[in-house]
């Protein structure tokens, strides 16, 4: 059990007339090695929740356990927590500041107080993981393309060797190719490095084929938690929240409504193709 969130509340402007729940009684357990999609529209509380996981925001009440230990315990090292739970913000390229790519990636490990050798080894490993070779090391991060900048920023977090990696809308503003590249990279990190991944997104379609579990947030509350196919069964409720299920879900339900009994578990284009062909050949 990597992260356990217990009865978490976050209230803005408590005890004033402006009082507003950003998070309301959230309970969530994230196991080691999971690949989770955290879905919700703007203002649903999903970004607020992720910022609690590495201690950037403090809950009004409730508790968060990391590997069984409360992060709100007195003397708990936030610095260590932040290196274990890596958070990649939306548009992470906006945090780049060093003169070259390599130095920028070194920033994280340097803050951890590691030896120069260790810092450089980690930076190299991280850049290798995101697919940037040595020819990039001495380039200015500001002269790279949008997708490359984002890779550098992700490497900057990976260099801290996190056990859990949270990515907030990592594909925002990218074109379809850039989006597939980044999501492919995240999938590789999960498979090859065995990093627990929490992918924050407002697009069901983008994450459905990668994640094994979806958590849906709405108005500060956790509303659904399960496998993609379980969650997509609630496509009508999702739509009411301003979240659309993938088009395939609609096709499946429309066909079923017409008496064509295609399995409800179908969520991706490939599964739909196979199911429909099976029915067609019959």
């Amino acid at each position: 059990m990597a992260i356990e969130i217990k009865n978490l509340n976050h209230i803005y402007g408590q005890d004033t007339i402006f009082q507003q729940y950003a998070l309301k009684n959230v309970n969530l357990t994230i196991e080691d090695g999971e690949f989770i999609g955290l879905i919700g529209h703007t203002g649903s509380g999903k970004s607020t929740l992720t910022q609690h996981l590495n201690g950037l925001l403090k809950a009004t009440d409730g508790d968060i356990l990391y590997n069984g230990e409360s992060i709100y315990r007195e003397g708990y090292s936030m610095k260590t927590l932040r290196s274990k739970v890596g958070l990649v913000f939306q548009y992470p390229e906006h945090q780049l500041f060093e003169v070259d790519v390599f130095s920028d990636v070194c920033f994280g490990p340097k803050n951890l107080g590691l030896s120069q050798d260790e810092i450089e080894t980690r930076a190299k490993e991280a850049l290798d993981l995101v697919g940037l070779d040595e020819s990039f090391y001495k380039q200015s991060p500001f002269e790279l393309s949008g997708g490359q900048k984002r890779r550098v920023a992700i490497a900057g977090v990976l260099a801290m060797k996190p056990e859990v990696l949270i990515l907030d809308e990592p594909t925002a503003g990218l074109d379809p190719k850039g989006r597939d590249d980044i999501l492919g990279l995240v999938e590789k990190l999960h498979k090859e490095q065995n990093i627990t991944i929490i992918l924050v997104s407002h697009s069901m379609e983008d994450v459905a084929k990668y994640v094994s579990r979806l958590v849906v947030m709405n108005q500060g509350e956790k509303v659904f938690d399960g496998t993609p196919k379980d969650v997509f069964r609630h496509y009508k409720e999702l739509e009411a929240m301003g979240l659309a299920a993938p088009q395939i879900t609609y096709v499946v339900h429309a066909l079923r409504a017409r008496g064509i009994m295609i399995s409800e578990d179908v969520t991706t284009v490939e599964e739909a193709r196979d199911e429909i062909l099976k029915l067609w050949r019959k």
Binding site: N54, L56, K79, S83, F107, N111, M160
Partner: peptide
């Protein structure tokens, strides 16, 4: 940006004046 750098272990609070000034660069 401050939060993003803190997520990378940056420290904007402790240290003497010069250290604090240096911490502002990122």
């Amino acid at each position: 940006i401050m939060k993003a750098q803190m997520a990378r272990g940056a420290d904007f609070e402790t240290g003497n004046l010069i250290q604090k000034a240096k911490a502002m660069v990122p």
